[in-house]
C-alpha cells in the first residue's frame, strides 16, 4: 500500500467509523440503562433516512402504496434532517412502549425483549417496503450545500466542492465533502452527548438509573420517564446517522439499516458493552480496519470487523474499554 493510498483509506475509515460510532451509541445508551440490546435500532436508523427524504418533499418511486406521492411542502434540507431525526426519536419512544415496557412490567427475561424488538424491526422494514417500495432513494443534490450554509464563506465561489484535495502526499488525498460533514457531525454529536450525560441533571439521572434503578426511584427519579427519554435520544441520534449514510451512499432500500445493526453490535462488543467512549473507539477501529483491507481482498471487508472483534475478545473479554462485571453472590 502506498503512503497516499494509506492516508486515503484512513480518511475513508474515519468517516465510516464515525458513523458506526454514533450508530452504536444508540445501542449503548439503551444497553447501559436496561442491559438489553435494542434490535429495532437499525430500523430506526432506516426510518430517520426515509423520514428526512419524505420531508424534503421529493416524490417517492413507482412501487408501494405511496408511489409517486409527495408532501405538499418541501423543507430546507437541514430542517428536514432535524424533523427526520425527531420523528425517528418519536418512533423509538413508541418502540419502547410496544416492545420493551410491557415485558419489563411483567419482569420478563431480557432475551424475550430482544426477540420482541427484533420482531418490531422486521415489521418496520416491511411497512417501509409496503409504503414506498424497495428501490433506492437519494437526497436532493442541494443537500450538501444546504447543510454547509453557515460555512459557505469558506469557499471562494460560494459553492461547496464535492471533494477536498489534501496535499499531504503526492498525489493528494481526496476527501469527499460528505465525509467531512459525516465526521464533523459525528464528533459534534459525541461531544454534545458526553456533555448531556456528564454535565446535566437529566444526564446524571440517566447514569443513576443505569447504575441502580431502585435507588433512583427512591430519589424521586421516574425511571419510566428516563427510559423513555433515553429511547428518544437513541432514536434521534440513530436517525441522524441514517441520514448521514444516506447522504454518502444513498438510501439503499428498506434493509438499509440491517447491515449497520450487525456492525453496530460488533462495535459495542469490541468497545465494551455500555461504555460510551468504548462505542466511539470501537466504531473507529472497525471503520479503519475495514478501510485498510487491501483492494484485492475487498470482498472480505465485512469479515474484518468480526475478525477484529474475535481477536480483541480473546485478549480482553470485556471489550476495549468495558468494565469488568463482578458478580456478587
Amino acid at each position: 500500500m502506498t503512503t497516499n493510498l494509506f492516508f486515503q483509506q484512513v480518511a475513508n475509515g474515519l468517516a465510516i467509523g464515525s458513523v458506526y460510532a454514533i450508530f452504536a451509541l444508540g445501542y449503548t445508551l439503551i444497553f447501559s440503562i436496561l442491559g438489553i440490546i435494542n434490535f429495532a435500532h437499525g430500523a430506526v436508523f432506516t426510518l430517520g433516512a426515509y423520514f428526512t427524504f419524505t420531508l424534503t418533499g421529493t416524490a417517492f418511486g413507482f412501487n408501494g402504496l405511496l408511489a409517486q406521492q409527495k408532501l405538499p411542502f418541501s423543507l430546507w434540507f437541514p430542517l428536514a434532517l432535524l424533523g427526520g431525526a425527531l420523528l425517528a426519536g418519536l418512533i423509538s419512544v413508541i418502540i419502547e412502549r410496544l416492545a420493551f415496557r410491557p415485558l419489563r412490567r411483567r419482569g420478563a427475561d431480557s432475551l424475550l425483549t430482544l426477540v420482541s424488538s427484533l420482531g418490531l424491526a422486521v415489521a418496520i422494514v416491511n411497512i417501509i417496503q409496503f409504503l414506498v417500495g424497495a428501490e433506492a432513494y437519494s437526497y436532493p443534490s442541494s443537500a450538501l450545500n444546504d447543510i454547509l450554509t453557515p460555512f459557505l464563506f469558506l469557499f471562494p465561489d460560494g459553492k461547496v466542492p464535492l471533494a477536498l484535495r489534501v496535499p499531504l502526499t503526492e498525489p493528494p488525498i481526496i476527501v469527499r465533502m460528505v465525509q467531512v460533514v459525516i465526521f464533523a457531525t459525528s464528533i459534534f454529536i459525541l461531544i454534545a452527548l458526553t456533555y448531556l450525560i456528564n454535565g446535566t441533571k437529566v444526564g446524571k439521572a440517566m447514569r443513576a438509573v443505569a447504575e441502580d434503578a431502585t435507588t433512583s426511584s427512591l430519589l424521586g427519579i421516574s425511571t419510566d420517564r428516563l427510559i423513555q427519554f433515553t429511547f428518544f435520544l437513541s432514536g434521534f441520534v440513530g436517525g441522524i446517522a441514517g441520514v448521514l449514510v444516506g447522504m454518502s451512499v444513498g438510501i439503499t432500500g428498506p434493509y438499509f439499516g440491517i447491515a449497520f445493526g450487525l456492525k453496530g453490535l460488533a462495535v459495542i462488543v469490541l468497545g465494551g458493552l455500555g461504555s460510551i467512549p468504548g462505542a466511539v473507539l470501537g466504531g473507529l477501529v472497525i471503520g479503519l480496519g475495514e478501510a485498510l483491507v487491501p483492494a484485492e481482498y475487498i470482498g472480505y471487508k465485512d469479515a474484518v470487523a468480526f475478525a477484529v472483534l474475535f481477536i480483541v475478545l480473546l485478549i480482553r473479554p470485556q471489550g476495549l474499554l468495558g468494565r469488568v462485571f463482578i458478580q456478587k453472590v
Binding site: K201, K204, A205, R207, A208, E211, D212, T215, S216, L219, G220, I221
Partner: peptide, 16 residues
C-alpha cells in the same frame, strides 16, 4: 451511586 461523585449523589438527592 458508586460510580458518581459525592457531590453528584447529593445533587441527585434534590432531583425532585
Amino acid at each position: 451511586l458508586a460510580r458518581q461523585t459525592v457531590e453528584d449523589n447529593l445533587f441527585l438527592g434534590a432531583y425532585v
